[in-house]
Design a protein around this nucleic acid. Structure first.
Lengths: 229, 229
DNA sequence: ACCTGAACACCGTTCAAGT
DNA sequence: ACCTGAACACCGTTCAAGT
């Protein structure tokens, strides 16, 4: 009876190739790095590589999937009673620092690739949504505890937070007109004002004609998917 | 005496090629679209195309350069006394709508290409900064008029605004969990609270240990470049 | 001056052939 | 079962040759 293929070896080979690909992508970006380079770095032939990854963007998907792991400690310290805003500051600095490092090309390429590659986008979305849902829960807790304004949609808050983080990441990586630390500080200044329980809303005499539109305050939804009309 | 090369013809050819490239990029994205396709669409040979654009990404740069034009009316209505926040809402909806259309791949590719292509990044930065500087001026005016909180750095405000717009654009284009209109509404809710002259800052008993960091309130700088340390 | 299109130096991916 | 590496079908770009 023939033995099943060794899963140990397969897993190790996958890891070796992934590690080699990371080196190459960091060095030259996703599109500039060639499969030949990755093969050389991983010391395998092209044929062998295609045993473990069915395409170049399959490698990117695998890398992106692994990225979502080391934020776990943050949720644990949240559970231990840490302030949400202080925890978010740590998250922000961590995230923005990645853009300043040589990871910038990597992240930008993943973004761009997502627009067309539906499978990759689905993978990213799945991971991102999981993280997002946990943060939404944390925001809800903070609202109940009086730390944040209670009249804002938690899903909306988290979406704005993530959007600003992505946008600031782009600035840090491309325009380079601000450091990760300064960007995170600016973000926190904004969040503290935005989310303050006692915040007022602009209503200046000059604006009287045009009524201020408020975002529809619907019942809090379980996942952000439900936010779309 | 030989006549100079006809600038009329050159300009027309450039425009034809640019238009053809736009069709191809919108259809398949920057990297998937081939030069052969663009040549076929523009009805010129590869050799002819390379007379007018020195590379594929040179075409992207030219497209990006043209994009920054139709926002002029917004600044005129601002000069005519329109409220800054109302004007920003129009700007936001316009910008976010582009991501929902077939322009999404185009914009995402420009972003990604910027990370490595330094010339392209410089081109984008130049245009972006010009727009940014004009908005910074508008924010300053609004602050002086009491429409916005006066204790915030105008450069910081505009940077956060642009960052959030870019990040929301990504959500609209890739995750597709929100419409351009809804995203713009969320953004405006945030901006009205964040920029309110009477806004409070979160200072909850639980946060007493960690002092709240404020962005350094330096003398207003002429260009945002000076914001980096 | 302006254009053509075959040719060049690559690229991601496959597959017959080895061990 | 696992791997090799030449071969395949392409790509962006160039350049001798035409008009």
């Amino acid at each position: 009876m023939p033995r099943l293929p060794d899963p140990q070896l397969a897993a190790r080979r996958r890891r070796e190739i992934l590690e080699a690909a990371l080196v190459c992508f960091r060095r030259r970006g996703f599109h500039q790095a060639t499969m030949q380079e990755i093969c050389a770095e991983a010391r395998v032939s092209p044929g062998a590589l295609y045993r473990y990854f069915k395409s170049k963007s399959d490698i990117i998907a695998a890398i992106a999937a692994e990225e979502h792991a080391q934020i776990e400690p943050l949720f644990q310290s949240l559970a231990a009673g840490a302030s949400l805003l202080d925890t978010l500051e740590i998250l922000a600095v961590d995230w923005l620092k990645k853009f300043a490092d040589d990871d910038a090309p990597l992240i930008a390429d993943v973004f761009a690739e997502c627009v067309r590659d539906r499978e990759l986008a689905a993978e990213i979305t799945r991971n991102g949504m999981a993280l997002q849902d946990r943060l939404v829960e944390a925001v809800r807790t903070a609202q109940a505890g009086g730390e944040l304004a209670a009249d804002l949609d938690p899903v909306s808050i988290v979406r704005l937070l993530f959007a600003t983080l992505d946008g600031l990441g782009f600035r840090v990586a491309v325009l380079r007109d601000i450091t990760p630390e300064a960007a995170a500080a600016e973000l926190m200044t904004m969040l503290r004002r935005f989310l303050s329980p006692t915040a007022g809303v602009i209503s200046h005499p000059q604006n009287d004609i045009q009524r201020i539109k408020r975002a529809p305050r619907r019942a809090a939804s379980k996942t952000s998917q439900e936010t779309s009309p």
